[in-house]
Amino acid sequence: MNHQEELPSYSDLLARTDAPPGSSWGLFGDDDDLGTLNFLTPERRIRAASLVSSGQAYSLDLPLDAFRQPLISHRGALQHTVFGLNEFHRDDKIDNLFPQATSQIDGLRHFGHPDYGFYNGADPERLIAGDPTLGIHRYAEHGVAGRGVLLDVGRYLEHSGDPIDYTQARSIPARVLDETARHQGVNIEPGDILLLRFGWLGHRMNQMRQDAQTGKDTLSDTPLVSVGLEQSHDTAEWFWDHRVALAAADNVALEVWPATASGLSVRADTQGALPPSSHTGMLHRILIPLLGLAIGELWQLDELAEACHADRRYECMLVATPLRLPGGVGSPSNAVAIR
């Protein structure tokens, strides 16, 4: 299918019999490994460039060493060494770098669907280092540049008298995204890079700073919980029907974490073929392998949100440059918003 305006709706995808229900497999070509980044067309990049007026740039990345203790236990902390061949020279190296440990973009090989497999039916045997199949380098080659739109969900809910309690795993339904957009006076357009600010990351970083000042450790023994998007087909429908190219948030998983209250299930779960795990019920299983949605997590959005709130302008040009790592699973986002 060559014309994006002819793409089926999410409800149509759920009725597919020629591919997994709810999937976009084959719609961008049988060998596609870009997924929703196909929505970032040259025309939409030109539109994004026209949004720059002040030229002010905002980095949306945390420092690579932001978390002394990894948020996700299997992702360790990097080790940075600076050395020199003589007193007038310096080089450095990084060991133990986990590309998805801080501000990140997930590639399409990050998650497979337990019943249907990886995006576009990719052979899982090929999802190894160096093999290009679904590698993060394809995002880098295509380019991640387009119209960025910030939905400041945290500020909207506070304004509405329903502020977020960051100690709880609060689930945000898709209707709140529509409400936030209406409140801000902004429209979501096909090909947008959507930025969702919940305020979770800013709260987490404040806790870490307070611990550093007091010498206390209030976080390491506390289960990781995060506000995030509701795990439902309504959420998936919202992203697909809006033709979102990439969705990034200032939380740990885009969706609410953990997924213990999720209503989503797969046959592998219900029939006992797959043991319960932290992935059970996750929206990731739909967004990445079925729809091919590019996802960003732990993006630093507070400074940008303040600027947007100040002049009531919630759109910008956004550029991200993931690592050109052949066969990479994910990458630091290296994202900049330009207004």
Rank of each mutant, 00 (worst) to 15 (best):
P20S: 12
S24V: 14
G26V: 05
D32T: 06
L34T: 02
G35M: 10
N38K: 10
I46C: 04
A49H: 12
A49N: 11
G55A: 02
Q56V: 00
Y58Q: 00
L60D: 04
L60E: 05
D61S: 10
D61F: 02
L64P: 03
D65A: 14
A66Q: 10
A66H: 05
P70E: 13
L71A: 11
I72R: 07
S73I: 00
H74Q: 13
H74S: 13
H74L: 04
R75T: 00
R75L: 03
A77F: 03
L78C: 11
Q79R: 15
H80L: 09
V82S: 07
L85R: 09
L85N: 10
D91V: 00
D92H: 05
D92M: 01
K93D: 01
K93T: 07
D95V: 01
D95G: 03
N96K: 11
P99F: 10
Q100A: 15
Q100V: 08
A101P: 08
A101D: 14
T102R: 12
T102F: 02
I105D: 12
L108F: 04
F111S: 13
G112C: 04
H113Y: 02
H113C: 01
D115Y: 08
G117C: 11
G117A: 08
Y119V: 13
N120I: 08
G121Y: 03
D123L: 05
L127Y: 01
A129D: 11
A129L: 09
D131L: 01
